[in-house]
Design a protein around this nucleic acid. Structure first.
Lengths: 137, 137
DNA sequence: CAGTATCCTTAATGATACTG
DNA sequence: CAGTATCATTAAGGATACTG
């Protein structure tokens, strides 16, 4: 991984050595790039949550997708799942240490998004005005 | 957007105020979360590139997907597209200022990935060992 | 060279019903 | 409550052929 600079704007040049195997970025993007993982992580950053709590906290997520999302996050070692053998059953989800460290990345993402969402919105409007019915969008 | 701390691990608590509209993270994730955008951005971080150059630099991308990817990046204002009216046609792609700033985010992503890819791989192996044929993966 | 246009396959997500 | 199982729907991506 090398970092360099060019011209006017400060720039982080990211290369992956010579292997074209994405330096593992893909595995991370495949997780945080899906529709729900980030939202679940953000909610768990607030503290321990039970299954139903998570579902209520993430409006729109289906039971099925919540199950899949927490399973995958658990598999990746980002969250832990604790079953309390009570009746009715009680299952608690919590960020692991690695999961917590991921919240920094999510924050960087959120900050960049907040800083540029207006510019992006304007760029899109302009582009759409110049390229009506282009199929893109 | 608020940032707080808890317990053992340093943690960035990211909230979106009260609106459940993802503070615009989704728009960014929808772009960098797709299969090719990050790879194209990383290549363009090296400098100006033509269409065919990009395709060669990003192994496995189809002509169709490269077209879609650069169109969307252009629409979002992250790259610029310059057509030189020569024959054969020559089209150059380049990061915009906003595109350059995005490379910092990509670098943060790459760094986090590099730092945790082993831990993630181990977590997956363990989970897979404990949960054979679980459907997840 | 730099694309479009079509068609096809697969992966992701959603809706609904049911269970320990 | 915390899921699983099944089916349906959509979106993403890929293959191939063709064009200014």
């Amino acid at each position: 991984m090398s970092v360099g600079h060019t011209g006017v704007t400060t720039e982080a040049v990211v290369t992956c050595g010579d292997e074209h195997e994405d330096c593992g970025i893909r595995e991370v993007l495949d997780r945080i790039g899906d529709k729900w993982s980030v939202l679940v992580v953000v909610e768990l950053a607030q503290g321990v949550r039970r299954f139903r709590q998570l579902q209520r906290a993430v409006p729109g997520i289906s039971q099925r997708m919540l199950t899949l999302t927490v399973r995958r996050l658990e598999r990746d070692g980002l969250i832990s799942r604790t079953v309390h053998p009570t009746v009715p059953p009680q299952v608690e989800y919590e960020l692991t240490t690695m999961g917590h460290s991921l919240t920094h990345l999510v924050k960087a993402l959120a900050d960049w998004s907040a800083d540029h969402r207006d510019a992006i919105a304007r760029a899109r409007q302009e582009w759409d005005a110049v390229h009506p019915d282009s199929g893109i969008r």
